[in-house]
């Protein structure tokens, strides 16, 4: 093992922060649904990719600015998220069964994406794609920076909403003890629909970030599941800031491992971190 140069290490760590922010953005919706609604939503990843393909379609074929597509994608996916919650409530799906049911929905969405856009690779060529600027010796790519900024704004925004608004307090109360919260007049079903809508919207935003940064193929949906779940577990279920923190810890630890040792060691380090944390703090599982 040779010691990497400072520039290499800093550039790698920055790359880890960027990808970690995307893990965090994807994990934010997953963690909120899991912690507050007790829904383990694998369809969240499929929603994100569906949003990415819609962004690709609107921007490549429709000529829209990719960021402007958020105006259509956010409400659409909020409605999708709420609709999924309604269906899960309607059939009284348990948390474990929600994992199976949403996996099925993810598979259906994957098939739908493949039917519409084929299994071939799709790359969104946007005005943002090739833009990189230099800060000192470090190169900062614009799409990744946008993802980081969006992740920070959303994570802190949701954290503040959960802490300082009646809606947030009600949601936390419902997650803590739903019958008691209901006794205080909180409409559980309506609040759950609102939160599921927010999670759907978050999937939509993550999808736009994916489209800005990555080449799309339907099967990529599952490539993100393991590492995002790890970020959510590290950060804590139902936490607004946790998934972003967990994502960045994983992203940076992976990147630094790649710089110091070998890229093939990266997943071992990040998942060892997770296992270590679960052993030390089992209440997070």
């Amino acid at each position: 093992m040779t010691f990497p140069s400072g520039t290499l290490l800093a550039q790698s760590a920055l790359s880890g922060v960027f990808i970690g922010s995307l893990y965090g953005l994807l994990g934010l919706g997953v963690g909120l649904a899991w912690g507050l609604l007790h829904v383990i939503n694998l369809a969240h990843f499929a929603f994100a990719f569906l949003a990415a393909y819609l962004c690709y379609q609107l921007a490549s074929v429709g000529g829209m600015d990719p960021l402007l597509t958020l105006a259509l994608i956010v409400p659409l996916f909020a409605a999708l998220g709420a609709a999924l919650q309604w269906v899960l409530e309607r059939f009284d799906v348990s948390p474990l069964n929600s994992l199976l049911a949403t996996f099925g929905i993810a598979a259906i969405i994957e098939a739908g994406i493949q039917w519409e856009w084929t299994a071939d690779f799709r790359k969104l060529e946007s005005v943002y794609a090739g833009r990189t600027f230099k800060v000192g010796v470090l190169f900062v790519p614009l799409p990744e920076l946008l993802t980081l900024l969006l992740s920070l704004i959303l994570a802190f925004g949701i954290w503040a909403a959960m802490r300082y608004t009646n809606l947030g307090r009600a949601l936390r109360a419902l997650a803590e003890d739903a019958p008691i919260a209901a006794a205080f007049g909180i409409n559980r079903r309506a609040h759950a629909l609102v939160l599921a809508g927010v999670c759907g919207a978050l999937a939509g935003i993550a999808g736009v970030c994916l489209a800005l940064t990555y080449t799309l193929t339907p099967s990529q949906i599952y490539a993100w599941v393991g590492v995002v779940f790890a970020a959510v577990m590290l950060g804590g279920l139902g936490s607004a800031l946790g998934p972003l923190t967990g994502g960045i810890v994983i992203g940076v630890s992976e990147a630094v491992t790649m710089a110091f040792v070998s890229p093939s060691w990266a997943p071992i380090v990040s998942f060892s971190l997770l296992i270590g944390l679960l052993l030390l703090k089992p209440e997070r599982s």
Binding site: Q11, I19, A259, S264
Partner: peptide, 16 residues
């Protein structure tokens, strides 16, 4: 350098 198939972050590999 070696990486596992399905790697998501090529930034550090590029830097090396």
């Amino acid at each position: 350098l070696e990486w596992d198939f399905g790697n998501l972050d090529y930034g550090p590999i590029a830097a090396r």
